[in-house]
Structure formats: C-alpha cells, structure tokens
Design a protein around this nucleic acid. Sequence first.
DNA 1: TTGTAGGCGTTATCAC
DNA 2: GTGATAACGCCTACAA
Lengths: 350, 350
Amino acid sequence: MKPRVGIADVAREADVSTGTVSNVFNRPEIVAVHTRNRVLSAIERLGYVRSENARVLRGQPSRIIAVLVHDLTNPYCMTLVQGAEEAARAAGLAVMVYTSPRNTAEEARCLALLTEHEIRGVLITPADTSDDFMAALPRSGIPCVLMDHDARPGRPRVCSVAIDDVTGGRLAVQHLLAAGHRSVGFISGPPHLPQVARRRAGALEAVAHAGLPATALRELDCPAMTVAAGRSAGRRLLNVTNRPTALFCAHDLLALGVLHELNEAGLRVPSDVALVGCDDSAYASSASVPLTSLQRPGRMVGATAVRLLEAETSLPDGEHDHVQVVLTPELAVRRSTAARDAHSSLQHRL
Amino acid sequence: MKPRVGIADVAREADVSTGTVSNVFNRPEIVAVHTRNRVLSAIERLGYVRSENARVLRGQPSRIIAVLVHDLTNPYCMTLVQGAEEAARAAGLAVMVYTSPRNTAEEARCLALLTEHEIRGVLITPADTSDDFMAALPRSGIPCVLMDHDARPGRPRVCSVAIDDVTGGRLAVQHLLAAGHRSVGFISGPPHLPQVARRRAGALEAVAHAGLPATALRELDCPAMTVAAGRSAGRRLLNVTNRPTALFCAHDLLALGVLHELNEAGLRVPSDVALVGCDDSAYASSASVPLTSLQRPGRMVGATAVRLLEAETSLPDGEHDHVQVVLTPELAVRRSTAARDAHSSLQHRL
DNA sequence: TTGTAGGCGTTATCAC
DNA sequence: GTGATAACGCCTACAA
C-alpha cells in the first residue's frame, strides 16, 4: 500500500506551495496560467486525488446524499432511487441508499450513520410509522426532502415532491367514462394509504363531473397490493350483480390478478371489461393484455428531490423557502382499455 | 446552525481529557467504569456524534462500500443491491450506489468519486465493456469484489461471487425430462452473454445424461430478454414441425412472452407445453400461469460479496487470498410445469 | 488509569 | 500571484 499522495507532494513536484495547489482547484482564476499548468501536470504525473474527508472536515459541504426508501425491491421505490442517482451523478454527488428504519433502534442506528458521515441531506419516502423519525431528522440539522408525500398542509418545514394522485384518479376514470362506460369499479388497496385515498377522490370527481351519481363508482376493497389480492377481487367481482364494465385498480399487480381471474372465467379484456392499473410498472406493459396504467413519474420525483436538496443546501441557513413540488401523472393508454368492438358496443346499448 | 459538538466538548463536560473520551469509543476496556459512565452520560447529554471524516482522515478504515450495477431498475440488479445493503447495514457499513460507467469519461468520474471518498471497497457486476475499468480499479488500490461473474480462471486477482449457471441449466432441463418430456426447446437470449451460454451447457448435460441425443434440445435464438422477443419466439415456435413439449427460457420475460403467444394460439400451459423461466423475478410468480423458474440467489450474492469485502479489508495488505464463491441456483417449481393431466399424458403416449 | 501533543490533508487568512 | 500557517475533529504514542 503506497502512502497516499497529498497536496504537499504535488506542491513539491510543481515547486509551488500547498496553498497554490489548493487554489488551482478552488479558485483557478486567481492563479497564473503557467503556474496552473505546472500544477496540473504534477497532479497528473503523481495521480493525485483529493481527500473528500479532509475537505468536509475543513468545513466544505459534503458531496453525499442519502436516499431512504421502504423497500429496495419495490419497483416504484427503485425508480425514485434511479432518478436520484442520475441527478446526483450529474451534480457530482454520491448517493447512499438505506432502507427506512422500522423501529426505534433502527432509527437510532440510521440517524447515527447519517450524522456521523456528515451527509449533505436526505431524500426520504416517509412511512406512516416514521413520524418521530421525521421529527428527529430536522432536529439533527440534516436537510431533508420528502418524496411522494406532501408535507403537512400547515407550515411546511421541509421541501417535498409529491405526485398529484387526485388528478391521477380523475384521469383514469375520465378515460373510462369517455370510452362510454357508465359503471366503474374501483379496486382499492389498503384504505389507509393516502395515495389510494386521493386516487379515489379523483375518481369520484370524474364521476361527478360527468353528471353521474356517486354510485356509478363501485368500490371493492383489497387488503394488499398483490396479484393474489387482485385475483380474490376478481372472483368477488364475478358474482356482483350489475357488474361494472370497467375497473380502475389501485395498482398494476391488482389489475394483473383481476385480469387473470376474468380470463379464467371466460371474460375478455377489454371487450367485456376494461382495465386500468396504476404505477405503470413493467408488469403493465408485459401483461398478456397490455394494461393501460397511471404513470407515476418516480424518476422525476427522485431527480427533482435532488435538485431541491441542492438548492436548499447551497444557500445559507434560513434563507431557503421550503417548496412543495407536485408532479402530474399521465395515463399510459394500452390495449386493456381499447375501444370496444361493434359487438360489445351493441351489447352496451341494450 | 449550532457549532458541532466535538470530542473536546464532551471531555470538558465529563471533566476528563479528550484522549479518554476517544478511548471510551475505541478501547472501552482500558477506561475505569465510573469514568466511562461519566463520559457516556456527557455524550448523551450533549448529543455528541463522531465525525467519520476525521476518523478516516486519521487513518481508520472507511465505513462506506460502493455497489456498481448496470441498471438500478433491473429486478435482478436490485436483489444484488438489496442483499448488499442488508449485509452492510448489519455490519455497520453504508452503501453507495452507482450505475456502472458506460464510457471512458464516466469511468474517470466514477473512479474519482470512489477514490476521493476513500471508499472501503467496491462491489461490481462487470459488463463486457468495462474490462479497462476493471483493470483500473485494482491499480487505484480499491479492493473489489466481482458479483455474478467468476474471475478469470487463470490467477484470480480479486474475489468474486458467481452463480453456477451450468447447474442451473441442468436443473431446469432435468426437471422437464423427469416429467416425461423428450423434446425440449431452449429459448436463448443474446448469445454472447456468458450466463446464457452456461445455462445452455447445463441443459445439454442434462440431455446427454438422460441418454438422449443432443438434438433433443432445440434452440431458438432471441435478440433480447424482453416480452416482445418472447412473443416473437412463441410465434416462430407455432410453425415448428415436431414442436417441443417443453421450453426452457433464458429469462422470465421471454417465458412470459411465449406464454402469451401460446395462449392466444389456443395452446395451454402446462398441458400442451411446459414452461420454465429464469431469474425467478416477480414476473414468474405473478404470471397468469405461475411460472416454474430458475431461482438465482441475487440477494445472497450481494450479501456474500459484502462479507468477502469485509474479510479482505480487515486483513493487512497482501495477507488475503482472493476467494471465488459459487452459489447454486434452485428451481422454484410452479404450475407452468405441473404434471400433465390424464388427457395429455395419453396424448403424449400416442 | 488518565493527560498531552502531534499529525492526518485540506482550506482560508494573512503577509509578502 | 504566491507562500507560510492555523485550524477542522479525531486517534494514538508516550509521558505522567
């Protein structure tokens, strides 16, 4: 292990002082061209690399941001991480990943890790359980941006990037209503999830706006966002009187389960039932009938969060107004809601 | 912004010297119990956190490892990251993620990032393109563990954790042969991928071992590992004379595409055609017919890689023998290869 | 068992 | 424009 080559070695090699070498990096404009070139070639020759640790020890801002997500294998979470990583890389920042702490002990360990490394800031998708953690973060002085979650309406103490799920729900149901459906089922996920609640609100808005009674939206609860739960919902659906001709599912996996079950019962998508999923995960496009799906711009959320964090941390303390960004989802239209053919149109008219 | 509370503040508060405070962390046993307690309570009171930067600046080993993968949204890569993150967290290490550099400029930036942060080591899934990068890493002195890739057979200069894909291919085809199939199709991916080549080798082994001619394995090339490519393969398959009764696909997505296409042509899985996928991604279990799939233990690869890196970096330089770990995949058996019913058994006998 | 002091590599402030 | 020098916060001989 060769001893690390430092700024002093470069200085000696280039026959200048350490201060000048430092200036070559930090204020290139104030050092004479020929001196600078001498220094640069010395750096090259010696293969010198700066020590980030010494930099931040000396008080420079850290170049590391942390991303906390619930589950690294969740495709949506990964789009957040991906967006963050891309934006961070472009900004010369490194990304540390961490799965959100699930109990007080983990919270302490996590907080220790973040503070000990003097992280630049944290991007986090808060869980319902982590309210105390969310409170501890600002107390520790670590800047923090919320992802996929709008800050408390009152006075925002942090920045956030959310997705407008109300609009999302509205888009999905409007699309179905525009195709002529008059009865839409909403296959919901766990009811306590705020995202789901907002999609429902949007769905109701669309129904109301079309002049239909609220009962035109029929709800079917699901305990979880899984294929199995979707299958079970699909089975229940088969026995429903006056079955809806279109379904909006709170997640692609639910839609997938429903799709399988409908197919097995001999019903066709989209001719018998139209189907809209949510999240536009790879599942949607790879389903046996490609699913129309509400596309939630996770990558953009991650990237925007990085930018907000950068903005916040490059300003002196207190001079930053916390800002809440809301991104709008789009509907990726695919075969599962294709216009119904003549036969089923006729059927509909009867 | 309150000024950081340092070791000196703690020392003052506990009425000891800074050296003693440091000892409380680094060699607790040599400091008297009552002194230690006084220090600990002072730490608690002041909310002191160590500065990792100062620690490693002083020569302590870094507590950060980097994980380089091709694509953060690739489900398999995610399992690698997940495994690494879990193991790292358990070991008190932080994980930095980075998408593998795609050109020389990115390589330089990446190398700079890693060296400037004085990373403890790197876990990497090497791409075919990154040979020069792979050479640059050890030159920079950063310890490195290869994931899903065995080191060059000659003299290994790094540790590696690979998956025994030959055995994997053998397992898959043995399973099919044991179910009575006598003609198996191999839907391969891009032929240059070494993993695919090895799975094919294993498949051929199984065929030979069963006393069948090599022609019992029929190959169908696919340009990519996507659903679309799988559909196209499925269509080609329909016109093949003497169609195989079982298929081993080099990836779940291929299998999914094949499944869709077979279904649309009125063929049933598994009664008409049995289907085995690969990677055991979530796609496999969530397919309309849950897919039997070759389960590649990505999480374990990531976790093992962390352990190897830890072992390597906690030994003095040169005293470490690079070790190549090979993990064995397992077959997750599901409905797509369920025993065929009486009817199709009969059909088979004819 | 505890205290003291030097140095890790960098940046910033001052003289020159 | 450039050079010397004092921090930053911590660890570890070595001295007491």
